[in-house]
């Protein structure tokens, strides 16, 4: 019961903040919440299951584009558009993961790199369906029970998305599945000897987290009411990986801290160094791996243990 209250409290606090913010800050806040959501699901795949993939933003994009295309070009009902979008994510995820995850080695990383690259090409060359380089715009969230969710209320929807994602991942992490994922990351051979189907665990983790990214993408589609290719590219996929590494891979808190930090730093730094913060992030990541592989959360633990 107390844990339910805690979740409820977090929801009220996070959503309540939206009503105090200006329109501009609400926008920044929404993007921050979305980044944290993505970092959480990516952390499960990379930090907990030990799989490198570069397709998280591609699935975010598949979710966003598919819901818009199904709704406004095919005029499907809202729930059906969402279900089809999720199905599409699962289908693509399985198609990539089944051939590459059953092998030892880093094939999934390369396959998802190729998928992410191809996805941007398809968006740019997709003509009227994807809107080409300009993307799709001029659509609105369908009305629900006669009202359209707007403003801070939509921020509250994103808070629900974040907490829902965290709850799902939390439960997965504390189950046989989460332990199997960690076992696969630590030592696949021993995991197999303990009865863990290594390939299946990897494929399931990839598909699940990709579907979560797709769902986040569907929510994102109505944040700016426009979707266009650059958001879903490899740059952001790298940034997401860096967030998880800097924050502390394998820990939910690490993903949250890393995402918040790397998302907010450019706002502080850009007056000083323009748009070169990505270079700073690259250096930061190399330094983190060399000096503190457990990230900021690990650093905090170390300091607390030996003050």
């Amino acid at each position: 019961m107390s844990s339910l209250l805690r979740w409820l409290g977090a929801a009220l606090l996070l959503a309540g903040a939206a009503f105090l913010l200006s329109d501009y800050h609400n926008d920044v806040y929404r993007k921050l919440l979305l980044w944290v959501t993505l970092a959480l699901s990516y952390n499960f795949l990379f930090g907990i299951c030990g799989q490198i993939a570069f397709s998280h933003f591609a699935f975010y994009g598949i979710g966003a584009y598919s819901v818009v295309i199904f709704l406004f070009q095919f005029h499907l009902p809202f729930p059906l558009a969402i279900l089809l979008g999720i199905a599409l994510c699962i289908l693509f995820a399985l198609a990539v993961a089944i051939p590459s995850a059953r092998l030892e080695g880093f094939y999934l990383a390369l396959a998802t790199l190729a998928l992410a690259q191809l996805f941007i090409v398809v968006l740019n060359e997709g003509g009227a369906v994807t809107g080409g380089p300009g993307g799709l715009a001029n659509y609105k969230l369908p009305e629900f029970l006669g009202t359209r969710i707007r403003g801070p209320w939509y921020t509250a929807v994103i808070v629900l998305l974040l907490l829902g994602t965290l709850a799902v991942l939390w439960r997965l992490d504390r189950s046989w599945f989460g332990r199997a994922c960690r076992a696969v990351r630590d030592n696949p051979e021993v995991a197999a000897a303990m009865g863990v189907d290594v390939a299946r665990t990897k494929v399931t983790a990839f598909t699940l987290t990709s579907a979560l990214a797709g769902i986040a993408g569907m929510v994102y589609a109505f944040v700016d009411n426009t979707v266009n290719p650059p958001i879903f590219g490899l740059d952001n996929a790298f940034l997401l990986l860096f967030m998880v590494i800097v924050g502390g891979a394998g820990r939910h808190a690490g993903a949250i801290i890393g995402a918040a930090l790397l998302f907010l730093v450019p706002f502080v730094l850009s007056p000083l160094i323009g748009h070169h913060h990505v270079l700073v992030f690259g250096v930061l990541v190399v330094a983190a791996i060399l000096l503190q592989p457990r990230g900021l959360v690990g650093l905090y633990d170390a300091i607390r243990r030996h003050p």
Binding site: S175, W176, R179, A183, A191, M194, G195, V196
Partner: peptide, 8 residues
């Protein structure tokens, strides 16, 4: 508990 994986 990883050892118990197949028993869940």
């Amino acid at each position: 508990l990883v050892g118990a994986h197949t028993r869940f």
